[in-house]
Design a protein around this nucleic acid. Structure first.
Lengths: 149, 149
DNA sequence: TTTTATTGTAACCATATTAGTTACAACTCG
DNA sequence: CGAGTTGTAACTAATATGGTTACAATAAAA
């Protein structure tokens, strides 16, 4: 099991919009960098638009950031692309036997522990802004450029 | 996307082994409490056995704990039932364009952030032992018993 | 030894999700 | 108008999940 690459694609797209603000970001252009089909990009971009993270212009085409990078956290992207239903990262089996003491009570205990684990994960995503990520990315690009030419 | 219920089933099984040590824990009996098919139980139990968390006796049947509750963390169970490939909770898209500066460098940055998020989640699981979980569960059972009779 | 109950595993099924693809109506703007 | 683009539906192949039947191998009781 893995969390859908829609999340990583969403981050990739927003990074492109941030780092290359001058370009005409069509789904085809974005797909070229992500390495996938334009329709996949349009689907993810649709999620980002709905969440108020990106603007997309129909007809003439092109996407832009709808918010400052400082005001977009990785958790915002994660939620936007709808990869994990809220509070349900873990699937808890659904028919424990209520006639058995363990069966009747384990669900509550399990959900508590799993919620904490999930919250810890999302907390890390919430603590990183796209500004920080793009800064790290830009530094990475610059370092490689300096090294390889 | 959700992490397979094998994990919650595994915890449920170990809890049963701990709370009802006197019973004959056949897959059928366990399935009765979990609310699923005995084969599903046997499959999970197979994972737990392989990981050294449970003993299962073929032929005459019956499962028992193979370790003290204090020496089993939720992370042990999570790893045992093989719900998430190590280090790969997040699926990162696999063909970013190396000719694009963003495409060439985003994977490393993404993996770093995602690894931190995943590690935070697993850290919570590692911090909870089956002893603690079973204690909470036993308290829950007792409270309900006292209230409802 | 025979009988009975159980495990371990293969095989199959229905369902769901994912990511890619084709197709096309609706839209924007030169 | 015409060229280029988005939004979306529809289809596909691949994969994972959880349930089910079936049965050989096994253990222990009768």
């Amino acid at each position: 099991m893995q969390i859908s690459s829609r999340f990583s694609i969403g981050v990739h797209i927003l990074s492109l919009l941030a780092i290359r603000p001058q370009d005409h970001h069509t789904s085809e252009w974005l797909a070229g960098s992500v390495g996938t089909n334009p329709v996949v990009i349009r689907r993810v971009l649709g999620h980002l638009k709905k969440a108020g993270l990106a603007n997309v212009k129909a007809g003439s085409g092109g996407a832009t950031l709808a918010r400052e990078l400082d005001e977009i956290t990785l958790l915002d992207v994660y939620r936007a692309v709808d990869v994990v239903e809220e509070g349900n990262l873990f699937h808890v089996h659904e028919q424990p036997n209520p006639a058995c003491p363990v069966g009747a009570n384990i669900e509550k205990v399990l959900r508590l522990m799993m919620f904490k684990a999930q919250a810890a994960m999302e907390g890390v995503l919430a603590a990183v802004t796209m500004r920080e990520l793009v800064d790290v990315l830009a530094r990475e690009i610059e370092e490689k450029r300096a090294a390889n030419g």
